[in-house]
Design a protein around this nucleic acid. Structure first.
Length: 119
DNA sequence: CTGATGACTATAG
DNA sequence: CCTATAGCCATCA
């Protein structure tokens, strides 16, 4: 089925978010090849089956805010897990400039043989 | 098929 | 910074 493939691509991307970094729903969707699919990412995470190993807590809103309501159980859980990776959430907000995942840059760092002089 | 939903987002005030 | 609003789009009922 097609919807299943889409969901799997979303989960794959989330699993690729490195420890210590975060990505936005829209960013995940775009990387997964689903432009404007931010809500679908949220939908997918919302229905994660028990026993999953998806780092859902590394996904936040584009603004850097945690998507859960302040005071909720999940809000606290996410903030706690992020803190464990060295990501501080001040008032439920994360410094995206500092922690936003940049897959392209990651690849360049792992493949220094690529053209550097292009800038 | 139709209308409602929502772990979203960009924009305006 | 915050709220309000309008797009968005796969799923659901």
């Amino acid at each position: 089925m097609d919807s299943k493939t889409r969901m799997q691509r979303i989960l794959e991307v989330i699993r690729d978010i490195p420890r210590g970094s975060v990505a936005s729903y829209g960013q995940i969707a775009e990387i997964a090849g689903i432009p404007r699919g931010a809500r679908q990412v949220g939908y997918t995470l919302r229905n994660l089956p028990d026993g999953h190993t998806v780092p859902w807590y590394r996904v936040v809103q584009a603004s850097g805010k945690i998507a859960f309501a302040p005071g909720s159980r999940q809000y606290a859980e996410q903030q706690k897990r992020l803190a464990k990776e060295g990501i501080a959430a001040r008032k439920g907000r994360i410094d995206m400039h500092k922690y936003r995942w940049q897959p392209d840059l990651d690849e360049l760092l792992w493949k220094p043989s690529a053209s550097w002089d292009e800038q």
